[in-house]
Nucleic acid binder design. Structure first.
Lengths: 333, 333
DNA sequence: CTGAAAGCGCTTACAG
DNA sequence: CTGAAAGCGCTTACAG
């Protein structure tokens, strides 16, 4: 690997000068600049970021902790964060916690980012606990994006899951349904989906509806609970089924087709997220979460924290999405 | 930030000893080990990966260059690579080239990874040219995954796009279609999709069919060419339309519905990728690319190269996917 | 079994 | 405008 030393020798200057040219520190003769750049180009020199990071005591590296890259909502977030970060002149690196049981491995991913001495950290994975982040709050600015965050010392930019649940519940109630099944994953499986599900149930009950709460605590098994809801639909004990994610709604739709149930004839269905491509063709009634706003605002907050540590008061901002109508939500049977 | 120095002081040993305990170099007294671990825990010490990287002259960092995280196929690859990498005891960091015009920015992402002195590089983005990678081939093992690769010095693990095109073409021809529109993006827009499209066209022609090649070179504008194909369908000059990705097929389906065309009544449709969730509910006939195999094999090859540089002969392996039947492919009108 | 010392590749005051 | 030198936080021969 070619080092700065090699460039210096080739350009007949000192390492200090090469460094100044590359960093862009002003007092350098134009002729020298050119000599150095030529040597850099000819040798194909790429500065060692480790040495740079060690030497300057600051970092423009931003770490992003994403949960499951195969979830389209995370993919979109990742992509948007990437754009936002680079428009702020920062660099993004991403780590994915290996998703086995629980949060153990998320911690490993966290330590990896911290080891790289990122200048700021974006946490979008829901399962890692705020208390796990606590020990590092003094050394690096942390912003939660798109995940439920209540910690008094961690900035949060996320979705208004309570309102989302209420919005969807209203639509279902307004369609005339009186008896509704709601799938509610355990909080440790997905905090966001848990929150959504609970909110749906609470608001339906608030409007006097009959609610079947179908709780699941199977991690990585989205099919859990689907069979129960199929039964409720078959027996006519529920005329609508609400899911806390489009993914789960799709699984139900598949199962319903397989079981010969008509949607929305026998059972209406709603999802939540609105990110998966082609949902409109499926006709799923859902809610589009405002990923764009959350990503943009999240970086904005992090950037401020990085340039002025401790300057900003901790806030938990929440953004609300929009209902997306679809043929899977019909009038009550 | 707490340094090794602080740990050493707290444990009453030298930095060398702390390092030995943490790295796991054998000759250390059990009592000392415990003292050190206690100090590490109490101080919340996370080793500085930059300093480590600088000091040991090797790296277990693997870099992954992904193109567009919002593409579900990349998301799945990312996720699978993550699992494979960590099962090999390596660490993964991901960089996303900011996608503006052309490949300029992909180079920046590449340099970023190289700057971090990754021990190996996985390149999955199709637009970066093999010649751009050339200068670095001597310093770091590079494996192309899931992208078309012909370079004699770069290992490739990818999809058999030619066969994929042929498989889909065969299905369409067998359904009795005689006149087919094929969307073919320019190679610089997507090498893989270009290859697929060309292969479809060539194989349809080989079976004596009438092929309308609809070529597009609009980057980031998947709608390009859709209108032309709608016209062909409307005029009855094509009874089937083949798309090089599910994404584009979905866009067409949407447009066809909007235009009052029946699928497959007026026009049959096929896609390619098979990754998007809920495709079965849409009924899209497509081909599922073997992302799992490509990811697993890609890491395997990279890992071998990292542990035995220059030991392996360069190969270009290709994996073939499976046709996924769907209602959008019907008999010719 | 443990410590003092050199070195990894940079950046940045400090002199000149 | 430029160079010599110290220092960033580690690891690893080398002594002891």
């Amino acid at each position: 690997m070619v080092r700065m030393e090699d460039v210096a020798r080739a350009a007949n200057v000192s390492r200090a000068t090469v460094s100044r040219v590359l960093v862009g520190t002003p007092p350098v003769a134009e002729a020298t600049r050119e000599k150095v750049f030529r040597a850099v180009r000819e040798l194909g020199y790429v500065p060692n970021a480790m040495a740079q990071g060690l030497s300057k005591r600051s970092s423009d590296l931003v770490g992003l902790l994403v949960r499951d890259p195969r979830n389209p909502a995370y993919g979109l977030l990742h992509s948007l964060v990437q754009v936002a970060v680079s428009s702020h002149g920062l660099e993004l690196i991403t780590a994915v916690p290996h998703w086995k049981e629980g949060a153990e491995d998320e911690l490993a991913a966290l330590r990896r980012m911290l080891g790289l001495r990122v200048g700021g950290l974006l946490v979008s994975t829901g399962v890692i606990r705020a208390t796990d982040l606590e020990p590092f709050l003094d050394s690096v600015p942390v912003v939660s994006v798109g995940r439920v965050e209540d910690h008094p010392r961690i900035h949060g930019v996320s979705y208004n899951e309570d309102v989302h649940g209420a919005m969807l519940a209203d639509k279902v109630a307004s369609a005339g349904h009186r008896s509704v099944a709601v799938l509610i994953p355990a909080a440790w499986v997905s905090t966001a989906e848990n929150r959504r599900g609970l909110s749906m149930a609470v608001h339906l009950e608030g409007r006097g509806l009959d609610v079947h709460r179908v709780e699941t605590n199977a991690f990585g098994q989205p099919e859990a609970g689907i069979a129960r809801i199929l039964d409720l639909a078959r027996d006519g004990r529920a005329t609508a089924a609400m899911f806390p994610s489009d993914n789960k709604a799709l699984i139900f739709l598949r199962a319903a087709h397989g079981a010969g149930l008509a949607v929305p004839g026998d059972i209406s269905v709603t999802g939540c997220d609105g990110i998966i491509q082609g949902l409109d063709l499926v006709g799923l009634a859902t809610l589009r979460i405002p990923v764009e706003q959350v990503a943009a605002r999240g970086i904005e907050v992090l950037e401020r924290l990085m340039s002025d540590p401790g300057g900003t008061e901790v806030r938990h901002e929440k953004f609300t999405g929009e209902f997306v109508p679809g043929a899977t939500l019909g009038p009550a049977a």
